[in-house]
Amino acid sequence: MSFKIVVLAKQVPDTRNVGKDAMKADGTVNRSALPAIFNPEDLHALEQALRIKDRMEDAEIIILTMGPPRAAEIIREAMYRGADSGYLLTDRKFAGSDTLATSYAISLAVKNIKPHLIIAGRQAIDGDTAQVGPQVAEKLNIPQVTYCEEVLDVSDDELTIKRRLERGVETVKCKTPLLITVHSSAPACRPRHAKLLMKFKHARTVSELQEETKDYTEMMTNKPYLRIEEWSVADLDADTEFLGLSGSPTKVKKIENVVLAKKDSVELTTDDKDIDYLMKELIDSHVIG
C-alpha cells in the first residue's frame, strides 16, 4: 500500500497587497478585486510532501481543499508541481464556517481518504487564525506537530521533524498517523514542471466539465487521473448541525476597515532650528532626558 499524504490547501485572496481599489465605497474589502492565490504557507506544506515523495517511491500526494468551485484552480496548480490527485469539498452548506466547522468538514473528508500523514500550512492569510491544522488533528484524534520547518526523517510509521519556535528550534519524533503544519521558514515550493503542466492541464472537476463546451468524455475515460474529485455534504458522513453557520460558535459581530485617524501633527524641516525646537520640547515635557 502506498504512503498516503494529504496536503490541506486553501485558496485565498491575496491580502498582502491590498490597494485602494480593493476597498469598496462602504469601506469593506472587495474580495473580488484581489487575485485568488494558493495560500503561501500551503505551498511550503506541498514542498514538504514533495520532498517525502522524493525519498519514498510509493508516496502519494493528495490535495484536499474546501472552497467554492473555482478553488479547483489550486488543485491543478499543485498537480503541476507534483501532486498526484485532488479533492474539492464544495457545498453551499459549508458557507459561513468558522475554524471549528471548517475543521469538522475537512476531518470527515480526511477520514474517507485515510492518509498516513496530513500536512497543512501554519496559517491562511485571510482568516489569519492558524487554528484549522490543530483542530483537524483533534477531530481525527491524532497527534499534531505545528510549525514544522523540515521533515528530517520519514519511514512508514514514524517521522522526525524540526520545528521553528519563536525563540528556538525543537526536534520531535512521532508515529503516524499524524498532522503537521508547516511554517513559512520551511523551503519554498519548487516551480511547475513542464511535463506535469502538459499532463494535468485538462484536469477538471465534475462542475467544471459541465461548463466546458468541448467533449471531455473520451479524455476522462482514457486518462482517469484528470478527474478532480468533488465532494458535497452528501459525500461525507456528516452531522449537518456541525457544518457551516450552525456549526460555528464564533460570529462576526462587526468588521471595520483599518483607517488611520489623522492627528494634528506639527510639521518640521531638517533645519537645525526645527530639530532644536523639537528636542527642547521633548526635554521640557520630560518625554526624554
Binding site: P13, V18, I125, D128, T250, K253, I255, E256
Partner: peptide, 10 residues
Amino acid sequence: AFGGNIIATI
C-alpha cells in the same frame, strides 16, 4: 484579519 487590513469584532 485579512492581513491586517480589517478589524473584526468576534
